[in-house]
Computed example of a mutant assay.
Amino acid sequence: MMANLFSTFEPTTYTYFSLNWTSSMILFLIIPPMYWLIPSRMNMLWIKIILTLHNEFKILIKNKNYKGSTIFFTSLFTFIMLNNFLGLFPYIFTSSSHLNFTLTLSLPLWLSFFIFGWFKNTTLMFAHLVPQGAPNILLPFLVIIESISNFIRPGTLAIRLTANMIAGHLLVTLLGNSGSSLSLGLLNILIIVQIALLVLESAVAIIQSYVFSILSTLYSSEVN
């Protein structure tokens, strides 16, 4: 009776191989490698990427008094890039392919820069409306054009990111749905094309997040 009672705690009772050490090995999978090797190669790679982005954004931010601003734009780049990459996995919704998501990012950014610029540097904002060396007869038209271009900036940021995410994902989906009706030879070609498209979409995910963060940095540098 005692043997039967304590046999419920033995994993080999219901399986053909021992699972005594499985729970201990799971810890090595859950705990990240950076806790075992400091700095790990993944940690070193991520630090290198962050330093590279910091140097890029530091050049664009001309005002040296705003130290630490690069952290915000680096975090923005990381957030958009991870959302773009998540959309490449099967059955995962790509949030960055909808205007609700992209406008939520671009509109508050542009609005905060716009309000800060007009309240803090009003003269500079008026100077941006008139390009240097423009003829006087064209000044009213240039002010209208520059004003329109300023107001459509959040829309262009959002639409650019959304359109690039939708285009690639739509092409991958359409090609994937046609695979069931193809022959074996064409199916092998389709798999190669799909792999190439996934590599291309991975590059697009990085490039579009970089473009979004770079343009946001440029918009912020104009009001300082």
Rank of each mutant, 00 (worst) to 15 (best):
M2S: 08
N4W: 00
L5R: 12
T8D: 11
L19I: 06
T22L: 15
L27V: 14
Y35V: 06
L37N: 12
P39M: 01
M42E: 15
W46L: 15
I50V: 13
L53G: 05
L53H: 01
H54A: 14
K58E: 15
K62D: 02
K62M: 05
N63S: 12
K64H: 06
N65P: 10
Y66N: 00
Y66D: 00
S69H: 11
L76Y: 04
F77L: 04
T78E: 09
L82V: 14
F89Q: 00
F89S: 04
F93R: 09
T104G: 15
P108A: 07
F113C: 11
F116R: 06
W118C: 03
F119L: 15
F119E: 10
K120Y: 12
K120T: 13
N121P: 05
T122E: 13
T122G: 09
T123A: 15
M125D: 00
F126E: 14
L129I: 03
P131A: 05
A134C: 04
I137F: 11
F141A: 05
F141T: 02
L142I: 04
N150W: 15
F151E: 00
I152Y: 02
A158N: 04
L161Y: 00
M165N: 14
M165R: 11
G176S: 14
S178N: 07
S181I: 07
S181V: 07
S183P: 09
L197M: 05
L198C: 10
V204C: 03
I207E: 12
V211Y: 13
N224D: 08
